[in-house]
């Protein structure tokens, strides 16, 4: 499978990437290419031009930043998984990075690409939502911050404008109490359903992977926890407000039942 023809330009700076995006409406950024190239082979998307930001090494980093951890958008899964800073300060990010795809995928795919791609079945968007991450976008007018709750407005849609580059992701320090339950049929698969839980202020933030058009917080579960419910009782509300897909991996009904089981397991682990 070969993608439709396109022009190619490799850029050395974020400004050059923004200028190239503004010069051609049909252009798209290329980071690791591990969501974009498969889509282009299927001709789901046919960009006129790829702007390769894969060598913006300045945007590949993990460092402690005040109360949180700052992660460069071009940081690959492999580097997140290996980051000692993340393992200590936000271990859920390092652990889940190691569960994405397979080693070859993790040598190419970036955290920024996975956020911008906004796949409801993607692991990292859901984890970042549970963490209440802040996303830094850089555009022609400079930088702006986007809150996690606003980042994923629709199916395969992020809050980034067409001429913005996602440059940084900030997560709070969450060294204790977390869980990611990824239910798969085979090792390399995407999550049939995934659940992220992170202990915060005595309660827990909970988000769901592949339970609707976007990654989403399990609002019913969080409300029940805030009201003092135990994990098993709170988990019964896991499918509230969801619209899970039905496909060869499971029906809507199956996913709803699975979400309840996984939320309970995630809470038991995160709050233990």
């Amino acid at each position: 499978m070969i993608p439709a023809a396109f022009d190619y330009e490799r850029v050395d700076t974020v400004d050059a990437a923004i200028a190239a995006l503004r010069a051609d409406e049909g252009a798209k950024l290329l980071a690791g290419g591990h969501s974009l190239l498969p889509q282009m082979k299927l001709r789901f998307v046919m960009p006129t031009k790829l702007i390769d930001i894969g060598r913006l090494h300045d945007l590949s980093y993990v460092h402690e930043d005040g109360g949180g951890v700052a992660i460069g958008a071009l940081t690959r899964y492999h580097d997140l998984e290996a980051s000692e800073t993340l393992r200590q300060l936000a271990p859920i990010v390092a652990s889940v990075a190691g569960q994405v795809g397979d080693p070859q995928v993790r040598h190419m795919g970036t955290i920024g690409g996975s956020v911008a791609h906004a796949d409801p079945a993607g692991d990292m968007p859901s984890v970042l939502l549970a963490l209440g991450a802040t996303f830094v976008a850089t555009g022609p007018g400079g930088m702006r911050e986007i809150a996690a709750a606003d980042m994923f407005p629709g199916l395969f849609q992020s809050a980034l404008a067409g001429d913005e580059v996602l440059t940084e992701i900030r997560v709070p320090k969450t060294p204790g109490g977390w869980s990611y339950q990824k239910f798969t049929r085979r090792a390399q698969d995407w999550a049939v359903v995934g659940v992220a839980a992170v202990r915060m202020n005595g309660s827990a933030n909970v988000s769901l992977t592949n339970m609707g058009l976007t990654p989403m917080r399990a609002a019913g579960v969080e409300e029940a926890l805030a009201g003092g419910a135990d994990p098993a009782t709170a988990a019964e509300r896991a499918d509230e407000g969801t619209a899970p897909p039905s496909d060869s991996f499971g029906s809507d009904e199956y996913r709803r039942a699975l979400a309840k089981v996984l939320v309970r397991r995630a809470l038991e682990e995160a709050l233990a």
């Binding site: 290329l30 290419g33 390769d52 190419m108």
Partner: peptide, 14 residues
């Protein structure tokens, strides 16, 4: 490092 060469452009390896 291992990569899948079917999911990469030759240009990315330049």
């Amino acid at each position: 490092e291992s990569v899948k060469s079917c999911t990469m452009l030759a240009a990315q390896a330049d």
